[in-house]
Design a protein around this nucleic acid. Structure first.
Length: 503
DNA sequence: ATTAGGG
DNA sequence: CCCTAAT
């Protein structure tokens, strides 16, 4: 049996941890168990530290690691399907023997873009802190060395955190297969590009708590046991964009006090709603994050403790997806590492045209209306066709009419949505694009728009120019003079008329 | 109340 | 999708 470990790092409540997920490739299952290793605590004393640290942390990606079965703990827990993880025969050609040096991969682009997991800790509730030592000693030097493979190995295995035995040590020494679960994906926008993004990361708040459990003095390993609620994997993707893999708490102040889990617990509140997070982050993105005055660098205890962490399920929106046991949910998000805000990944579903019964999904309708900003409903091909048809009939700009006549039953499609979709269609159809983007567009098209549709859109675009499309026509007319108008018939002029005709 | 435009 | 200015 082959086992793979995915690990990533997160800064959470001033604690940086590594998460290990064990996957049994042969069985197509993911062992519902993760080990988290705390690699250190982050001091909020200095703003500079934070920035620096975050930047460093962002370099830490996930890796898939081939490990010995012996490293995998308690399999019988929960497992979940991870077929898709196997879907692509990644560059797993890497040495299976374990000869590969981790250095080669840690810094390579093979870094697993699995930041999905990075949001994980946010949904983690730490039930038990096994070991009376509280947080393991944080070691600044390690924090800041995340970008370097050699150090990284140190952190993972041979570092001071390593106790008598540890999974991590085995991990770091075992071969790191160059394979990445989803390396082909678009690299996540790096946080360094915008400082704002960094600020955005400072919006998380933990609701979990550390509880001291001296009963089980660990061997000094930083091993944390997590049972993963797969349900949350879906949500993880939502978080991914925030930090590029960095989590931190909303309030920077909370210093990690060594050996005082109780204190920590008091400071943890219920997790804010997504809405709240969004707004808060937006509001906060402008103001500077005050350097939480409290200090407590970090405890110097170099030994690690074992936490038992369980991810709470059904926290928010218990109304709907109340259901599910773990294995229910697939984790496509796990594999999805592309920025989904930019791209729509799915293809059109070909569904029956008179999909008016779309309201049939009334179960989620209410919620969708309410927080439609969250899950955007994908446009189906029939819908697109309908939209195109409507435009050809009523003209561009008559969105309310189109909505009224053709999308009356689709409650979630507002006129604005229609317009937006049309706008996107124009873009997708490369209408009025003189740049090379056109070509690239096709290639990058994640959504193969049927040719006929593209054609129709283009045709329509000719007849019904979208209002002020880059002012292209104006530009042309004004620059080229009236002569052009002659050879390119009344296209632009007819716009108004066309619309009136159907009124 | 709708739409255009931009994020 | 969301928000806002302009109509």
């Amino acid at each position: 049996m082959l086992y793979y470990i995915c690990f990533c790092s997160s800064l959470h409540k001033n604690v940086c941890v590594n998460i290990f997920i064990y996957v049994d490739i042969n069985e197509n299952k993911m062992i519902n168990r993760m080990y988290v290793k705390i690699v250190g605590c982050y001091s909020t004393q200095h703003e500079m530290d934070r920035e620096d640290y975050l930047r460093k942390c962002s370099n830490m990606k996930c890796q898939r690691v081939q490990v010995d079965e012996s490293y995998v703990p308690a399999l019988q827990d929960g497992v979940m399907e991870v077929e898709h993880l196997l879907a692509e025969p990644r560059n797993n050609l890497a040495p299976q023997d374990g000869s590969l040096n981790s250095h080669t991969t840690l810094n390579s682009k093979d870094d697993l873009e699995l930041e999905v997991l990075d949001g994980l800790l946010d949904d983690v509730e730490i039930d038990d802190l096994e070991g009376a030592d509280g947080f393991p000693g944080a070691c600044e030097e390690y924090f800041f060395d995340f970008g370097f493979a050699d150090k990284f190995e140190e952190v993972l295995g041979s570092g001071p955190f390593e106790g008598s035995e540890s999974h991590s040590s085995g991990l770091s020494r075992s071969s790191i297969v160059g394979g990445v679960l989803e390396s082909t994906e678009v690299p996540i926008a790096h946080s360094e590009s915008k400082n704002d993004s960094l600020d955005e990361t400072v919006t998380y708040e933990s609701h979990g708590a550390f509880s001291n459990n001296p009963s089980q003095p660990s061997q000094g390993n930083c091993r944390y046991n997590i049972s993963l609620d797969i349900q949350h994997l879906q949500e993880l993707d939502n978080y991914r964009h925030l930090a590029g893999g960095i989590l931190t708490c909303k309030k920077d102040k909370g210093p990690v006090e060594k050996g005082q889990p109780a204190a920590l617990r008091e400071k943890r509140f219920r997790k804010p709603t997504q809405r709240y997070i969004e707004e808060f982050s937006n509001a906060r993105s402008k103001e500077k994050v005050p350097p939480a005055g409290t200090k407590t660098k970090h405890s110097s205890n170099s030994s690690c403790n074992v936490l038992h962490i369980r991810i709470k399920s059904s926290k928010r929106s218990p109304s709907e997806k109340s259901s599910n046991e773990n294995s229910e949910v697939m984790l496509p998000e796990l594999q999805v590492s592309k920025g989904h805000q930019k791209k729509e990944k799915l293809q059109y579903e070909y569904e029956s045209f008179p999909s008016e019964s779309e309201d049939g999904c009334s179960t989620t309708k209410r919620s969708r209306r309410k927080d439609r900003r969250k899950h955007q409903k994908m446009w189906t091909l029939p819908e697109v066709l309908k939209l195109v048809e409507g435009i050809s009939e009523y003209g561009v700009g008559r969105w309310t009419d189109i909505k009224k006549f053709l999308f009356s039953s689709s409650s979630y499609r507002t006129p604005i949505d229609l317009r937006d979709k049309w706008r996107n269609l124009l873009r997708a159809s490369s209408v009025q694009k003189n740049k090379k983007e056109v070509e690239q567009n096709d290639e990058l098209a994640l959504r193969p728009l049927p040719f006929n549709v593209v054609h129709r859109v283009r045709e329509l675009a000719k007849i019904h120019p979208y209002p002020r499309q880059r002012g292209s026509e104006k530009l042309r007319v004004s620059q080229a003079g009236p002569s052009v108008v002659a050879d390119s018939p009344p296209v632009s002029l007819s716009k108004r008329n066309v619309r009136r005709k159907f009124t």
